[in-house]
Structures are given as structure tokens and as C-alpha cells.
Write a protein that binds this DNA or RNA. Structure first.
Lengths: 259, 259
DNA sequence: CGAAGTTACTTTATACCGTAAGGAGTTGCA
DNA sequence: TGCAACTCCTTACGGTATAAAGTAACTTCG
């Protein structure tokens, strides 16, 4: 389910995203027991523990001792709530990076921070990137990256593209780990167990496998997969190596653009 | 909504994925009017036109003049159907790339093909990459990439990581375009219109924007956004440039690893 | 002080979703 | 002919977002 920002009342959306400290205005009616922030925090907690599929208005309401409908007093709809969650959770990301060791070192640290961020909040990977939410923390992220990459001396237009490349790369790389981490609780089978049974079945059902996919066979023969209980699951280890190697490749590529 | 492969009956899953021409075995009961392939094709058609959120068992059934429940005779559940859709649609990707002009040229063509593929089938971006589906066409994709990158002469272990980096990069880059293309039909507002109204509101609601985000401001001042009717929307143009620039960076990086 | 209006929150209802359960009708084989 | 297997349908259940309406708390006005 990809969700787009509701644009029914763009002004209200932006006001919510950029809301300051709530003014203590006096109004008729019962005192609101909740705030937008409380609701957003609860929603993030639900999404962190139950995943995007477990995020429902009812679930968030119950977390706060309310019905799901109670949230609609504070937030126009679920899509807007998602935008608010997304922007708020982005605030976790550091905005200061030491550039004394150069842009390459800083970018590496940033990429690992961003990677770790997605592992803490895997549901963020499901938030549509089609249109920027235009919230304050999203701009902080962009500004931070620009500040790091500005040190390359490349023209601004190129910087923007590099930001897109790097964020896209990290998202793509972390997706494999983030989803597979959530999978065991979702299906009751660990990644490695799953892989083990499936690959055994594969040879059974596709008997011409080795002739049909010689290079894949070569690759797998090099690192025969076994089901021993390692601390880090096999697939996750693979993904981390892909991340680090890919990052090095991209950084090498940026350096190549400088010369 | 991230969906994991049902693992209730792994053997049946694999048999479905690697199903050959259906044997004309004689069995009691009415002749099945449908086939797994017909259902998978219909489901792909639904997903292509209505997106992942429009893909329901009922919708696919109706496309075939049946109820949603009729599909359960052929396919165990929606997750399995999704796996079948995913593997089948991958068959569209070319498997032969000319290596006469070297791995770099071939990789570039491959990346553009892969990009275009996601634009034809944006819903594929929502299919979980946590665990490979292990279908024949997924292996064809992997084998094809390995064949191209084998020409670099890099060790096999590195090749696998490069495959992950490149596929992840394309996925990440295309996501922005793929989702925004679908968005107009979903919300009734084009991307450019949306951006125009939103950025106007932004300056209204965040008046310290320029002081707070100086580099973002610098970037935006360079390429002032205007709402004229171009053939290619602004955001999409941006994404394409990011894709091409990012690809060049990655390829430069691979070349750097060779030396 | 009391009525009116505004607001927070609940209940109810509508239209979807995936899919379990059971029934109706068709077909092949004993 | 009867039985078993099979396709496909209807119905039902518990879930989703959210519209609409009701209740109770609170401020403001007469």
C-alpha cells in the first residue's frame, strides 16, 4: 500500500508539519487530553513494534486508551498522520558531521547512520518517496547532506543528484535487511531456516539448474550455505557486505568525478 | 503493506513457480476454465492499471468473470499470487546483452532497461525484497547481471555485491518517478501542481526557511521552479538526471575498483 | 444563573479487504 | 448408479478507513 499525502487541505497539512509549541488558546468545549505530538509518538511506537501492517488508527487509539476515531479530532486522516510520523522520526538523524577528515569520511559515517536509522524504523521504507513531505526534518536531512557534499567542490546541481543517489542506495540496500529482520516475527520462520528449506526444494524442482544458471552456480559453490547458528544471520551478513562495498564504489565514483 | 511469501507449503510454492506446461492429466470434476497463468496475467493487468492498492482477489476475479474466491482453487493465497506475478513479470527483462563494447556499455543499457521495467510495473517496487522468491526469472535476472559484470574480471564475491548495489540503486532511483506517475490518477492533482501549491505554502508557514536551510535555498535559487506545461514533468526530469548521474558515479566507482 | 454554541470523544454504520466454511453442480471411474 | 473429486459460488467473520450522529464537557453570551 503506497500512500500519498492527502491534499484536501494543503494549508492544514503544512501547518501541522511546521507546528510550533501549541499556543495555550482558550476555547469552549472539553479540554483536549491529547496532542498531535502524543498521537504521533504513539503511532511511531506502534509502527516500530508492529510494522506498517500493524499500524491502524484503532491500534494507535488503543495505545492511548481511546478509540481509533478519537484521533480524527487531531489529525485529518491516516495519510497525514503518516506524514507527521515520517517527519518526526527523521529528527533522530544527526545534523552535525565532522568534516575535518574530509567529505568521504563524513559521508561514510552519514550513510551508516542512515542505515541504522532504517533498521530502527523499518516502516519508514514503506513511506512513499514520490513527493517530499516538505517537513522541517526532511529539510534538515537534505541540508545536512548538502553541507557534507559541498566539501567536494562539485556544482550544486550535481550535489542534489548525489544526495538522491546516496539516499536511494542506502534505502535499497537496507530494505533487504529491514524486511528480513521483521519477517521472523511475521512468519515464525527465521531467514536462514527459510533459505535452507527453499534452496533444497529448488534443486528438486529445477533439476537443470546448474546448466541453466552456470554463473549463479559458480557463485554459490564458492560460499556453500550452511545452517549453523551464527550471531548474524547469513542473509544479513551478505547485505551488510553489499552495503559497505556499494558505498565504497559510490564514493570512489564521486572521487572520479572530481578529477 | 509488506508481504512475505507464505511458507505453509513450500513445496507447492516452488512447484507453482517452476511449473512447466501443464500436463493434460485426466481428473474427475469439471474441467478448470482457468489456469494459473491466466490468473497471474489478469492480476498483473490489475496491478499495472490500479496499482498495488487496487490489487484485490475480488478485482482479479472480476477481471476474469469470476468471484474472488474462485482463484483459491488455483493459488493458495494472495501472497503466493504476488510471488507468481513478480516472477512472471520479470520475464520481460532482456537476458542477452552485447558485451562487444565492454561491461560498462552493457551495464548502462541494462540499468535503463531495468528502470523502464519498473516504470511499466510500479507495483513491483512494493514487493518485498527481503527474501528472494527463487523463481526461474529471478535467477535469469541474476545470471544476466553476473554475465555482464563477469567481464570486469572482479572476483565472484564482489560481483554479487555489485549486483545488489546496482539493483538497489535502480530501485531507489526509480521509486520517485514510479510512484509520482501513479499519483495523479490517485489524487487528481499532477505532480507539478502539487509542488507549486506546496512550496508556496512552505514559505508562508516557515518564514525563517532561508536562514535555516541556506544550502537548500542556494540550490533552489539556481533552478527556480515554474509551472509551465512541459512534456516531461519537473520532478520526473530531476529523477532521470539523478538516475543517469548516479549510474555514471557507480560505474566510475567500479572502474576505480579495477585499478 | 441558564441557555446556546463549541469541542472531545464514542458509537454506529458503510464499504472495502483476505479468506474460512459449506453448498451446488459437473465430471470420471468403480 | 453411486461415489469421490473437482470447480465455482454464496455466506460469514474479523479486519481496515472513515463518515455521520450522539453524548458529555466546557466557554461564552444573554
Amino acid at each position: 500500500m503506497v500512500v500519498y499525502a492527502g491534499q484536501g487541505d494543503a494549508r492544514r497539512s503544512m501547518a501541522l508539519l511546521w507546528r510550533g509549541a501549541q499556543a495555550g488558546d482558550v476555547r469552549p468545549g472539553p479540554k483536549p487530553a491529547l496532542t498531535v505530538d502524543i498521537i504521533v509518538d504513539a503511532a511511531i511506537a506502534v509502527a516500530d513494534s508492529a510494522g506498517m501492517s500493524g499500524l491502524s488508527m484503532r491500534a494507535v487509539g488503543e495505545q492511548l486508551g481511546r478509540t481509533g476515531m478519537a484521533l480524527y479530532t487531531y489529525v485529518p486522516n491516516k495519510n497525514e498522520l503518516l506524514d507527521l510520523m515520517y517527519d518526526k522520526v527523521l529528527a533522530e538523524l544527526p545534523t552535525e558531521y565532522d568534516l575535518d577528515d574530509g567529505w568521504r569520511a563524513a559521508t561514510t559515517v552519514w550513510a551508516r547512520d542512515y542505515w541504522a536509522f532504517y533498521l530502527r524504523h523499518p516502516w519508514v521504507l514503506q513511506v512513499s518517496q514520490a513527493r517530499p513531505v516538505l517537513g522541517p526534518n526532511e529539510y534538515d536531512l537534505l541540508e545536512t547532506m548538502l553541507r557534507i557534499l559541498f566539501a567536494t567542490g562539485l556544482p550544486p546541481k550535481m550535489l542534489k543528484r548525489l544526495v538522491g543517489t546516496l539516499t536511494g542506495f542506502v534505502r535499497g540496500a537496507v530494505q533487504i535487511v529491514a524486511e528480513s529482520r521483521h519477517a521472523p516475527t511475521a512468519t515464525g520462520v527465521t531467514d536462514d531456516e527459510w533459505w535452507y528449506t527453499r534452496s533444497a526444494l529448488l534443486m528438486e524442482v529445477a533439476q537443470d539448474f546448474h546448466e541453466r544458471f552456470p554463473l549463479v552456480t559458480l557463485l554459490e559453490s564458492e560460499q556453500a550455505f550452511q545452517l549453523d547458528d551464527e550471531t548474524v544471520p547469513y542473509l544479513e551478513q551478505e547485505a551488510i557486505e553489499t552495503f559497505e562495498a556499494g558505498l565504497a564504489v559510490i564514493l570512489d565514483g564521486i572521487e572520479a568525478q572530481l578529477g
